[in-house]
Design a binder for these strands. Sequence first.
DNA 1: CGTTAATATAACCATATGGTTATTGATTCG
DNA 2: CGAATCAATAACCATATGGTTATATTAACG
Lengths: 114, 114
Amino acid sequence: MVIDSKELDLVFGALSDATRRGILAQLADGESNVSDLAAPYQMSQPAISKHLRVLEGAGLIERAKTGRETRVRVKPDTARQAAGWITHYARFWQQHFDAVDQILQQQRKLQNED
Amino acid sequence: MVIDSKELDLVFGALSDATRRGILAQLADGESNVSDLAAPYQMSQPAISKHLRVLEGAGLIERAKTGRETRVRVKPDTARQAAGWITHYARFWQQHFDAVDQILQQQRKLQNED
DNA sequence: CGTTAATATAACCATATGGTTATTGATTCG
DNA sequence: CGAATCAATAACCATATGGTTATATTAACG
């Protein structure tokens, strides 16, 4: 299952907010519930719920009701796909970057030989 | 130089649009100019200029005027920082994911022993 | 059984985003 | 020089985003 463009929109969009990245960072310690995830932030509980919905919509987390609380856990696969997109292109970009760098160094060398 | 949160907002925000990812993908073939980058899309030239400004603001590309055209090239370092953020956490997420998976398998095993 | 707790939803608001057309500023070319 | 080309900016518009408060829903507790 290769991630499609629409899904990448959602994943990167979800990652573009510091609160949501913070939530994902918290989940690196293992699954949690909404109250605990909300605790570090001084924003309202509904705001956190909305952030969780965005993360869920992007496939980065999943929520499961257990009793009156909602357990939240990360779905690592989606995140890896996003990482894959960047690192894939990063390799090509670096190549060209290095190539340009070499040319610049070559030019400096030639100038020093004057 | 570690990338800060505000900058990550901009980088992931820039990556959350398919047109901008397309532009970055084109730049994997080497630097280009605005017209060539705009060609594949059926949107107006100002729209592309705006996308380029977003990418530039995020530190993902740089623009340089040469004559009447603008050369555009990628800045691989910024992209690598974003990739770094994801992959850093991906390792932890995967750990917990694997741990949960093991527990589930253990439970299945116990059930089969009934 | 009534109250408290955990979470979601609704309605609203301000600002951001992604597009458009019109216009402008340089540069190149005939 | 005058026309065409490359690209940016301005002004505008519709929709999305991120927050709020108020309310609803469901579960747990005394």
